[in-house]
């Protein structure tokens, strides 16, 4: 559910290079990130905001298209259209980055893999093993190196290349040995026992979830269609048309404002509950 929402919102954000849609997406992403993650949103913003400014400034310097001249220094001319284009592009990038960041915070790898493992069980399992074993090998490597370096009585270091070769040799045979034992452990628990594997989920999909999922997908499709309509009527160069108030922006507003709404409702419920229990 959450994954679908994140995919929908990120996709509709990325595909609409349109001033109104881009500002809605950015405002929504900022509000959602602030409401859900609180102050920690400042972390990614620290590098994303300068990035936004850079995109805004760089575009008019390199692109000299557009008809409305704002300023001119010698050969360099700044046009309104290219400034707006840079701004839209920057907002779009920033909003997409924020949504992706939020998705990364909210969705654990485990959940993503379990979504995929219904279709490809072995691939899902392999991916989760790789995610676990790579850090293990890296930390083992540094420990082996440290232990060998610490044995000064036995001659200690014999040059970086030879030491490195020794350490990787140790890691290789160690990991191979481990993998033999692990595959034994897997077979001991019926791996490849011949049956079609089933899948355990620690959460369940209720009818309500299914209805909500269908509604969400339909809503996102409507939004995508309206975006397509808006974008096909919009052009940056040579002259931008005037923007009008249009009902078609509403579905996107509703889509991006959802997390903020949920967060606010949740907070209100808790405050209410506390007040009731204090009475």
């Amino acid at each position: 559910m959450l994954a679908t929402y994140m995919v929908a919102v990120t996709a509709t954000t990325m595909c609409a290079l349109h001033p109104v849609f881009a500002s809605i997406s950015l405002a929504g992403a900022l509000a959602a990130a602030a409401a859900i993650e609180g102050r920690s949103v400042l972390g990614p913003l620290r590098w994303q905001l300068p990035f936004l400014c850079l995109v805004c400034l760089a575009n008019p310097l390199f692109s000299h298209r557009g008809d409305t001249l704002l300023a001119q220094w010698g050969a360099i001319s700044i046009h309104l259209e290219s400034v707006v284009f840079g701004l839209c592009m920057g907002m779009l990038l920033l909003a997409s980055l924020l949504w992706l960041w939020l998705a990364g915070r909210l969705l654990s790898l485990d959940r993503l893999l379990s979504l995929g493992s219904g279709i490809m069980p072995t691939v899902g399992l392999m991916a989760s093993m790789v995610m676990r074993l790579v850090p293990q090998i890296v930390s083992r490597g540094s420990r082996v190196g440290a232990v060998r370096a610490a044995c000064s009585a036995a001659g200690g270091s014999k040059g970086a290349v030879r030491d490195g070769a020794r350490v990787s040799g140790i890691l290789l045979s160690w990991s191979l040995e481990d993998s033999l034992e692990r595959s034994d452990a897997m077979r001991a628990r019926g791996w490849r026992a011949g049956a079609q594997r089933t899948q355990y989920l620690p959460w369940s999909l209720s009818l309500r979830d299914v209805v909500a999922l269908v509604l969400l997908i339909a809503w996102a499709a409507l939004d995508a269609f309206l975006e397509w309509v808006a974008c096909s009527q919009w052009q940056f160069y040579p002259v931008m048309p005037h923007l009008k108030v249009w009902w078609g922006y509403f579905p996107h507003v509703a889509l991006v404002v959802l997390p903020l709404l949920f967060a606010l409702v949740d907070r209100a419920k808790w405050t209410h509950a506390r007040r009731v229990s204090c009475r």
């Binding site: 379990s114 069980p121 399992l125 481990d178 628990r189």
Partner: peptide, 22 residues
Amino acid sequence: NQIVCDSVWHEMAFGLENLAAD
């Protein structure tokens, strides 16, 4: 070395999944 999955619940389910338990 005998742990296969990356979360406790999944590790516990691993054997039953292999045996195609309901």
